[in-house]
C-alpha cells in the first residue's frame, strides 16, 4: 500500500500494443513512471507518441499488454471491467480536450453525472454540484446547456464534473487544446489552483509548452519511451 507520502502512481515495464490486421504497433514499450501524491505532471510529446494511451492506462480506461499499473497501492491492471468502472467512479476525474459534455443536459446535470453512481441523496448531490460549479466560477450558469456556453465555460463545467466526486487524481487530456489563449490560461490557472490549494494530483497531456510550464514537472514521451524534462 502507498503511504500518504509515497508515490501515488507507479508504472512498471508497461507495454501497449495496438493491432491493425497483421500489423503490430508498439505504442508503449517498457515504460516506467512514478508520480508523487499532490504532483502536477505535464506529459508532452508529438502526436502518436502514446500520451493519450498512457493516460488511458492510468485512468483505467484501457489495460496494458504487459507490466503493472499501481495507483494508491492497487494494481488496477488486474481489475475486471466492472471493478475498473467502480474504481474510476471513485478515484479518477477526467477532463477531455473537447469537454465531452452531454448536450441534452444542463451544466448542473452534467456535473451531477458521476454522483449518480454514489448513494448520495438528490439534495446532497445538488449541494456537491453547487460547490463544484462555484469552485470553477460557474455558479451563475448552472441551468445553461453546453450549446449556450463558450468553450472555456464548457471546459470549466468539464472540470467541475471531474472534481465533483473529490477524486484521488485528475487526468486531463489536452484540456486547453480547443481553447483560445485567454480561456486556456484561465483553465490552466484553475488546474493549478486545484493542485496547490486542494492538493489534487494532476496528470496533464499537452502539446503546448506554455501549458506544461504551469506544471510542477514535465516528462516527454517519444516512441513509447519517457524522458525527463531538462532543467530550465
Amino acid at each position: 500500500m502507498s503511504t500518504p507520502n509515497g508515490p501515488l502512481i507507479e508504472i512498471q515495464d508497461v507495454e501497449k500494443i495496438y493491432r491493425r490486421g497483421a500489423e503490430e504497433i508498439h505504442v508503449l514499450s517498457g515504460l516506467n513512471l512514478t508520480v508523487a501524491r499532490g504532483e502536477f505532471l505535464a506529459l508532452m510529446g508529438p502526436s502518436g507518441s502514446g500520451k493519450s494511451t498512457l493516460l488511458n492506462l492510468l485512468g483505467g480506461l484501457d489495460r496494458p499488454d504487459r507490466g503493472t499499473v499501481t495507483v494508491e497501492g492497487k494494481r488496477i491492471d488486474q481489475l475486471s471491467d466492472r471493478q475498473l468502472a467502480a474504481w474510476r467512479a471513485r478515484h479518477v476525474g477526467l477532463v477531455f480536450q473537447f469537454y465531452n459534455l452531454l448536450p441534452a443536459m444542463t451544466a448542473e446535470r452534467n456535473v451531477e453525472l458521476p454522483l449518480l453512481l454514489t448513494d448520495l441523496s438528490r439534495r446532497e448531490r445538488r449541494q456537491h454540484v453547487a460547490t463544484a460549479l462555484a469552485i470553477v466560477g460557474l455558479a451563475h450558469r448552472t441551468r445553461h446547456y453546453p450549446g449556450q456556453l463558450s468553450g472555456g465555460e464548457q471546459q470549466r463545467v468539464g472540470i467541475a464534473r471531474a472534481i465533483v466526486t473529490d477524486p484521488t487524481l485528475l487526468l486531463c487530456d489536452e484540456p486547453t487544446g480547443d481553447l483560445d489563449r485567454k480561456s486556456g490560461d484561465e483553465i490552466l490557472g484553475l488546474l493549478q489552483a486545484l493542485n496547490r490549494e486542494q492538493g489534487k494530483t494532476i496528470l496533464m497531456v499537452t502539446h503546448d509548452p506554455h501549458a506544461s510550464a504551469r506544471a510542477s514537472r514535465t516528462v516527454h514521451l517519444d516512441k513509447g519511451q519517457l524522458s525527463a524534462d531538462p532543467p530550465a
Binding site: 485512468g59 480506461l61 471491467d81 466492472r82 468502472a85 467502480a86 474504481w87 474510476r88 467512479a89 471513485r90 479518477v92 477526467l94 477531455f96 465531452n100 452531454l102 453525472l113 458521476p114 453512481l117 464534473r161
Partner: peptide
C-alpha cells in the same frame, strides 16, 4: 458513441 464512452469513463458499468 462518444457520449456513451464518457459515461463509461465516469464509471458507469457496461451493464
Amino acid at each position: 458513441t462518444a457520449e456513451l464512452g464518457v459515461l463509461k469513463a465516469l464509471g458507469v458499468s457496461n451493464g
